[in-house]
Amino acid sequence: MKQLGDLAGVFAYLSLLTVGGGMAAFPELKTLTVDVHHWVTFPQLLHYYSLGQLAPGPNMMMVASIGTVVAGLPGAAVALVAFFLPTGVLTWGIGRLWTHMQTWRWRPAIQTGLGSVSVGLVLAGAVIMAKGAVVDALHAAIAAVVFLLLLKTKVNPAYPIVASGVIGILAYWLAGIG
């Protein structure tokens, strides 16, 4: 029960930080799940996070994986509800008020101001993620190539990400890099 309570607290808190997308919560996600609660190791967190980018639907369904690791199916259910309910209720409420706020003078200021802060949070998340994901020159090259490919073409991101995994396997097979 204690673990279900911890899961609920951690993911409800994280959900409120997802301004501008799931990556904005990544720094706190790492601190809480790896350093504070020791539910997963940093490499495991990166693996789940990356698998979550491949899964269809919202890109943070990996919270269900962490919940499963901690407490099985009940853990997954608690993590999902905690992660989606608080912001869900907030969005639902504000969505109903929004039409009244259309002419509110502060609305553009909030949208632009929070926009730049959320880009900053995503950048912080990417830096922390890079510390774990870029383990050698090969993986730096993979990240750089995927970045350029997705920036310049309209290819579905799932393909280059799966290809990255295949390259990882090939490198391990051919050169023992893993």
Binding site: G21, L46, H47, V122, A126, I142, L151, V162, S164, G165
Partner: peptide, 29 residues
């Protein structure tokens, strides 16, 4: 073998995150 695959997709996912950030930035900055 799984680890080699997962390390690979983690590097690829990082590339995706940075693209998403650049696209978001182009709109709001």
């Amino acid at each position: 073998w799984s680890k080699a695959f997962l390390h690979g997709i983690a590097a690829g996912a990082l590339g995706l995150i940075v693209v998403v950030m650049v696209q978001l930035g182009a709109k709001v900055l």
